[in-house]
Design a protein around this nucleic acid. Structure first.
Lengths: 158, 158
DNA sequence: CGAAACGCTGGTCAACTTGCCCAGGAGGAG
DNA sequence: CTCCTCCTGGGCAAGTTGACCAGCGTTTCG
């Protein structure tokens, strides 16, 4: 991940349609170099995919909420994984992580409206292993999700 | 956003390199149709981009944490935006939203290690408008970020 | 009912890009 | 010094793209 990789990612993030040849022209390097760098970035896992970025809002789900779930402590284990499976089956669940604290789970959900959010939450909580939950609603996005600045910082060196 | 759009997004998510022609072959529709659908999906904002997906972990930042910030109440307003600008300047800040509750801000950060996380948090809190903060560290990802299931649900109808 | 609008098909065309190959040069490591 | 890695610049066949077009079935609307 050197400075050329940084400029390469910058370029493709700003203009993903350009293709390898055009990128090599803009960066002033040979086409083979661009191909090799892209292959390496994919091989090292820095670039995980080129799929389309989807907007939940444009899909009719403009409401985002964060749920914090408390999971029943079980000596048999597997409680987390079982709940995770339950969550993964709900399309409105976009993301879920275990977090520090008393065996808690953090979940990002979206919904069509505040009323619809109630339905989604009910669906999420429909699992006996969930003991308690709290909900906060995201009002506005101050910083949209982004990794590019981090990539720049890493590429431009410490 | 009908069923064909759903299959189209599915296809390009699973195999972004295929191109319009190959997609039309696999879906059994004319090439012009695929082009028109993709144009429309982009025009309606459902597909916001085709940029490379970057992995913070592969960039050397495997530690994810969520910060909840309490912002000083100001009658002059603009406190949120000013803090947002402060946050946007920090590469390790991947995302920030205002949330319900007492004027709070929710922030996602990454760091190179738990020790490095301290440095990042210090950096985030270096703003006089931030009154209080709490931190939780993400231990494991139970459900990775995804929008595809939601897109399928929307496409396949209510 | 009839007409217009719309979306899809299946075809053409030139221009471009891709994937793959190669030999050679520059720079660092042993 | 020599090996090794990376980058360059070139060439090739095959494939893809973007832009068109006429035709046709369906839906919408006056």
């Amino acid at each position: 991940m050197d400075e050329l990789d940084g400029r390469l990612i910058d370029l493709f993030s700003a203009d993903p349609r350009i293709g390898v040849l055009e990128a090599s022209r803009r960066l002033g390097v040979a086409r083979g170099t661009v191909q090799a760098r892209l292959d390496k970035l994919a091989a090292t896992g820095v670039v995980t995919g080129w799929g389309p970025d989807l907007s939940p809002a444009a899909l009719g789900h403009p409401v985002t909420a964060f749920l914090t779930l408390e999971i029943r402590q079980e000596t048999s284990g597997g409680g987390h994984d079982a709940v995770a499976q339950h969550l993964a089956a709900i399309p409105e669940v976009l993301e879920a992580h275990t977090i520090t604290g008393a065996g808690d789970l953090w979940v990002r959900v979206v919904a069509r409206s505040n009323a619809d959010l109630q339905r989604v939450i009910d669906h999420v909580l429909d699992d006996a292993r969930i003991v308690r939950s709290s909900t906060v609603i995201a009002l506005a996005t101050q910083v949209p999700y982004r990794v590019l600045p981090l990539a720049r910082a890493v590429a431009d060196g410490p």
